[in-house]
């Protein structure tokens, strides 16, 4: 238990700044009673999209169009997109808590209306759908603080990295999500459904949060189950380059406001 408290404090410290500080204080122990309560919340709040068995086949999915990505997550087998962990890893509890709290703009409502304890309970419950959660111990990657305010030279350098690291092939030369692979419909998600690269000029549409650290996390971890790869290894030891790129991406939406 003490271990988990330490992990949570660490995670909150890492991911702070999105209004969930202090969440660890109420995180209930992951036991049968917690999961039972989570199940009841799931059946009221999540089942119509994620389905009674967590397979992402709830009836509300009909409205999404059966052949359009993204489908509601299949918790039993699929990967998770919004993680603080390396590519291929499961998300941490904190990651799931953040997704449930923030929602996914355009696709899933925020459940900030549930109190924190209830959100932890439903997180405990959705983890029961995939036995891998019992076997694997996902560890968050380091998520540093930005080095300081963006500079023009840094942003200019970020633009060069954006081209050099191939972001444009999917997200387009100017970040509109209109790279040739995306426009031609060549990008597929893990269900084989066509998915487009995100329009990086619309900050509010970012699914995984839009603070500098949120974007840093998306780029380093990648979004598993989609073509968006992890760049953590490419930026290893190049902390400043990484932030130049992140600030360049942020500049794409600020210029237009």
């Amino acid at each position: 238990m003490r271990f988990w408290i330490t992990v949570c404090i660490g995670a909150v410290a890492l991911l702070g700044g999105i209004g969930i500080d202090g969440a660890f204080a109420v995180k209930p122990e992951d036991n049968r009673a917690t999961r039972e309560k989570g199940k009841r919340i799931y059946e009221r709040s999540c089942i119509f999209c994620h389905g009674s068995e967590g397979k992402g086949d709830g009836p509300a999915g009909w409205y999404l169009g059966r052949y359009e990505a993204p489908r509601p997550r299949d918790f039993t087998t699929e990967s998770f997109k919004f993680r603080s962990t390396a590519s291929g890893e499961l998300p941490t509890d904190q990651d799931l808590f953040r997704t449930v709290t923030q929602g996914i703009p355009g696709y899933m409502p925020s459940f900030a209306g549930l109190n924190e304890e209830e959100r932890w309970q439903v997180v405990s419950y959705i983890k029961t759908f995939n036995p891998s959660f019992k076997e694997e111990k996902p560890q968050p990657l380091p998520l540093p603080l930005p080095p300081g305010p963006p500079t023009d030279a840094g942003i200019e350098h970020g633009r060069k990295l954006y081209m050099k690291y191939g972001c444009h092939s999917c997200h387009g030369d100017n970040g509109y999500g209109d790279g040739s692979e995306s426009l031609k419909g060549n990008l597929k998600d893990s269900r084989g459904l066509t998915i487009s690269a995100r329009n990086l000029t619309e900050r509010e549409s970012l699914k995984n949060g839009s603070t500098p650290r949120d974007i840093y996390r998306s780029v380093m971890t990648g979004l598993d189950g989609t073509p968006m790869p992890s760049f953590a290894d490419s930026f290893a030891g190049k902390e400043k380059d990484a932030w130049d790129l992140i600030y360049y991406i942020l500049s794409l939406s600020q210029d237009r406001r």
Binding site: S87, D224, S230
Partner: peptide, 10 residues
């Protein structure tokens, strides 16, 4: 349908 590894190799 699980991603085992998706890394950019620049």
């Amino acid at each position: 349908n699980r991603t085992v590894l998706n890394v950019a190799v620049v």
